[in-house]
């Protein structure tokens, strides 16, 4: 009987500890999201979404001047993202960010304290690509943050976003956080919205590592778009 009592007390303590732990939901599907895009997709946000944190760290490792590291990496990531997307889908149409820049910035709620910001097309207005065609699905990349040892809750949990991060000398992982929305262009609604985090052990930073992490984040987006179907 004593063993039973000890066991029960352990269970009780564990339950209480689990109860106090914070868990987040990082994605949201529209109830009418029945089919994920398989062959063709349009993408936007490639011009402005990519941002690098700890730019001097990246500049030093990649031996690029500090002034041009942001421009360089965002171009590089954008190109790598598009290349990987073209490998994953048969036809990829790029819609320039300008097509979205006049829409107001809105927030989408993913969890009690998790909100992601981004520009979404107006209700009742379809977005056309440069050739004048109307793509059925648009993958909107709101923010793509590249850095080291990033935690997505520090960027998207409104209770934590004002916390100052300690200055770090070391880094274990190269991380990428991407917030995106799969937009139903025909009915103008967000089908699937999520914030993903990809970590990759950081050995010696090269451009190849960056293209690898961008590629795996594209693969993760594709997997989640399929898994998010209701």
């Amino acid at each position: 009987m004593k063993t039973v009592l000890h066991f029960a007390i352990c269970i009780l303590t564990m339950c209480i500890l689990c109860g106090c732990g914070q868990s987040y939901c990082w994605h949201q599907s529209h109830p009418s999201y029945k089919k994920a895009p398989t062959d063709s997709i349009a993408v936007t946000g490639l011009d402005e979404a990519f941002v690098v944190t700890r730019s001097s760290w990246f500049a030093k490792r990649l031996e690029i001047s500090k002034d041009s590291i942001q421009t360089f990496t965002s171009h590089f990531c954008s190109k790598a993202f598009l290349e990987q997307l073209q490998k994953s889908y048969k036809s990829v149409t790029v819609i320039p960010d300008v097509a979205f820049s006049h829409f107001p910035e809105e927030s989408q709620k993913l969890d009690t304290r998790i909100f992601m910001k981004g520009r979404l097309p107006e209700q009742g207005i379809v977005v056309k690509d440069s050739a004048g065609n109307v793509p059925a699905y648009i993958l909107i990349i709101h923010e793509f943050t590249l850095g080291t040892d990033l935690q997505r809750e520090n960027f998207y949990d409104y209770a934590l976003i004002h916390n100052e991060a300690p200055e770090k000398k070391t880094s274990q992982n190269l991380s990428a956080i991407v917030s995106y929305t799969l937009w139903d262009n025909m009915k103008q609604r967000p089908l699937y919205s999520a914030v993903n985090q990809v970590d990759q052990p950081n050995v010696k930073l090269t451009l190849n590592d960056i293209s690898k992490i961008v590629a795996s984040s594209v693969q993760q987006i594709k997997q989640e778009l399929t898994a998010g179907v209701k």
Partner: peptide, 27 residues
């Protein structure tokens, strides 16, 4: 008019009120 067009296209059996929210600030 634009919102009403959107609304009628989006009213489906499985939606909740929040999925039919008007987003345009003027609306």
């Amino acid at each position: 008019v634009r919102y009403s067009g959107w609304l009628i296209a989006n009213m489906e059996g499985n939606v909740k009120a929040e999925h039919l929210r008007a987003r345009h600030p003027a609306m």
